[in-house]
Simulated assay, not measured.
Amino acid sequence: MMTCTLDLYTDYLLSSTGPTTATGLSRLLDGALSHDHITRWLSQGTYGPAEVWRQAKPLIRQAEARRPAGKFAVLIVDDSVLEKAHTDANELICTHWDHSQQRYVKGLNFVSLLY
């Protein structure tokens, strides 16, 4: 019997070019996992910054060890929401999940990249 795993779910997130949902992953797997199964699996854990770093750190250290110090680089990606509670919704100002507040807020979602 197939089960949802962190590797499966992260592969889905990384390979998707649009919105990601439990239903979308179920459809991609031709129903081998139900969207309810995926949702239950997601609700069992916490996937905050500490968990992301725990997963990423060994991979980063491994890549770092393979390259000379002057040739190693990382790309840091951070998404943020600038809350605009009193601004009318439009193409840029709309509802987004703000992970720092653990709730949906109306605002501007932006991504910062640091190389």
Rank of each mutant, 00 (worst) to 15 (best):
M1D: 03
C4W: 06
C4G: 05
T5K: 01
L6P: 13
L6K: 15
D7E: 14
L8Y: 03
T10R: 09
T10I: 14
D11P: 01
Y12D: 06
Y12M: 04
L13C: 15
L13N: 15
L14I: 09
L14P: 00
S15C: 05
S16C: 04
S16T: 10
S16D: 10
S16E: 02
S16Y: 03
G18F: 04
P19K: 14
P19S: 10
T21D: 08
T21I: 01
A22M: 04
T23Y: 10
T23H: 01
T23L: 12
G24P: 08
G24W: 08
L25P: 08
L25G: 13
S26Y: 06
S26T: 05
R27Q: 11
L28S: 03
D30R: 13
D30E: 11
D30H: 12
G31D: 08
G31S: 03
L33E: 03
H35N: 03
D36W: 00
D36C: 00
H37N: 05
H37S: 12
I38H: 00
T39N: 06
R40F: 07
R40N: 11
W41N: 03
W41Q: 02
G45W: 11
T46C: 14
T46N: 15
Y47I: 02
Y47D: 01
G48L: 13
G48A: 14
P49R: 13
P49G: 06
P49W: 12
V52M: 10
W53M: 01
W53V: 02
R54E: 10
R54L: 02
Q55Y: 15
P58A: 02
L59N: 08
L59Q: 10
R61I: 02
R61T: 12
Q62F: 06
A63R: 08
E64A: 00
E64L: 07
A65E: 08
A65L: 08
R66P: 11
R67L: 09
P68S: 15
P68R: 09
A69V: 00
A69H: 04
G70W: 04
F72N: 04
F72R: 04
A73L: 10
V74P: 06
V74T: 07
V74A: 03
L75R: 13
I76M: 15
V77Y: 10
V77K: 06
D78R: 01
D79N: 12
V81D: 06
L82I: 11
E83F: 07
K84V: 06
K84R: 14
K84G: 11
A85I: 06
H86P: 05
T87R: 11
D88C: 07
D88F: 10
A89L: 06
N90T: 08
N90Y: 09
E91S: 15
E91A: 15
L92Q: 15
L92S: 14
I93P: 05
I93H: 06
C94L: 13
C94T: 14
T95D: 13
H96V: 02
H96Y: 11
H96C: 09
H96A: 08
H96R: 13
H99C: 09
H99D: 13
H99K: 03
H99T: 14
Q101M: 13
Q102D: 07
Q102N: 01
R103Y: 02
Y104M: 12
V105P: 10
K106P: 07
L108N: 11
L108H: 15
N109L: 12
N109F: 14
F110K: 05
S112E: 13
L113Q: 05
L113G: 08
L114T: 05
Y115Q: 14
Y115M: 10
Y115F: 13
Y115D: 15
Y115L: 12
